[in-house]
Design a protein around this nucleic acid. Structure first.
Lengths: 261, 261
DNA sequence: ATGAGCATTGCAACATACGCAACGTACTTG
DNA sequence: CAAGTACGTTGCGTATGTTGCAATGCTCAT
């Protein structure tokens, strides 16, 4: 809606692909070099863009700080965290918390497995949306129309033989998930990794987040992991209760352990 | 330099403090609501801003994706990573990699300790710049003038009794670090945690990054940690060699293990 | 029902962001 | 060593995009 700002912001994804010099930026924006220079300078002043020693531009450090602060301000994360660590303590596996936002699903918290094997996932990293158990829960709760729209627009990469192959299959899976109130990912993202997930709901019953427990086959089989389902659901429900204000902060030990030492 | 973009970008740090509605944004920017609305809409279209259910605005998911991509494009990180994991394998402690950028020092990679105790630090998180060993190395290498300017502008929070108290003390410490070519943080950030750090240098000898090994007192004493110094320096030098092209990718096993599974 | 508080729209006046062309500064090439 | 190329940078007149206003919708509480 604002041409100037629009152009300036278009520079960011462009630089995300890799460093670029003034000419390249101007070309890709379709504007004169002097215009691109002015925009880059403004971005630079705000720290969103950094000028490296060879004069080329790349994304700046302030982006990290912003992303970080954005995350810390999510109250669902704050409420959920102690529950997640407690769940991790009792089962030992990797625990994730994720939210949906305009077509994307992203992890907003993670407690690492206490087994030596680690999963590749990082807070802030967009989730493999077509296969992840948490993504299924979050998308399953969208209004019919939006759900269809999102499902159609997605790509369906075949990470493994068990990955969701296309939109119809995905929508069918979402219907099941919606029905049963929990979800799994059995080797759909990485052959040897399984997940069980449950939804966190707000006061109005809408799904505001989803949490999952993930473990590789080498540690527990899919069947064994599924036995954790009740525990996962109970944890998710506890978070829901607290988030929606029904449970007025139960345990006295809810405050301390934010951020593992 | 561009008023419109400048205003739009000023919204981001503002929202980083927490969600705000249109009126608040307009007020803090000192512009009319209609103006603020147009800017917010543009930010929204680019995914940098999200409109939550109560109509208030907060920072959006795209920020994470951008920060993520920005990080993956840092070639120093790519080169260093296998060395960091190898170092972690041989000593077991937490290993960090950090860079300096316009007044800030930030972690760009981290390999977790193999001991049960974890440190609170996160990739992308700004470093405690006045005390961290890596920060000392990075700042010590700045040109005299810039170093002084930065040191003067910093705040010196007293995390512990051993924290750097003020600018003169900091500059003195930087001089020492510059001299000896390595740095430590002995309980300056958290009472019980010590670090040893060494610089990574580019072809021209300038410090481009710094790496450190950190461990809590309960695992090893400061003296014991210091015995790792030669190993840390050797690792840093190996990275330097590879980064500056002197060592044309030594080990055949340099390619695989990006991102632990 | 009535009003307050908020987001939203259309529009005319003006400020500002635009592209141009000229200059400066490396770095190459004959 | 001089001419040439390829950048980034600057100043400036003009047109275009942005601004603030005032009026309209919308939602919620009284």
């Amino acid at each position: 809606m604002s041409q100037t700002v629009d152009r300036a912001l278009s520079i960011l994804p462009l630089l995300a692909e890799g460093p670029a010099d003034l000419g390249q930026v101007a070309d890709r924006l379709g504007v004169h070099k002097s215009t691109a220079l002015r925009l880059l300078r403004t971005l630079h002043e705000h720290g969103l863009v950094y000028r490296q020693s060879d004069q080329r531009y790349r994304l700046g450090a302030r982006l990290f700080a912003l992303a970080q602060e954005a995350m810390e301000n999510l109250d669902i994360r704050e409420i959920a965290h102690p529950h997640l660590t407690r769940l991790n303590e009792s089962c030992g596996h990797t625990v994730h918390l994720a939210v949906y936002e305009e077509g994307e699903v992203l992890y907003i918290d993670k407690v690492e497995s206490r087994y030596p094997v680690r999963m590749y996932s990082r807070i802030g990293k967009p989730v493999a949306i077509t296969v992840a158990a948490v993504a299924k829960l979050l998308l399953a709760d969208l209004p019919e129309a939006e759900r269809r729209a999102v499902a159609e627009k997605l790509e369906y990469p075949l990470y493994t033989a068990r990955s969701t192959p296309n939109a119809p299959a995905f929508l069918k899976e979402l219907a099941t998930v919606r029905e049963q109130g929990w979800a799994t990912d059995l080797g759909g993202h990485e052959e040897s990794i399984n997940c069980v997930a449950a939804p966190v709901r707000g006061a109005d019953g809408r799904v505001v987040a989803a949490m999952s427990v993930s473990a590789p086959n080498v540690v527990v089989t899919a069947d064994e992991l599924l036995t954790l389902l009740p525990l996962v659901r109970r944890t998710a429900d506890a978070i829901s209760g607290e988030y929606s204000g029904r449970t007025p902060v139960t345990t006295p030990a809810t405050t301390p352990d934010r951020d593992s030492v």
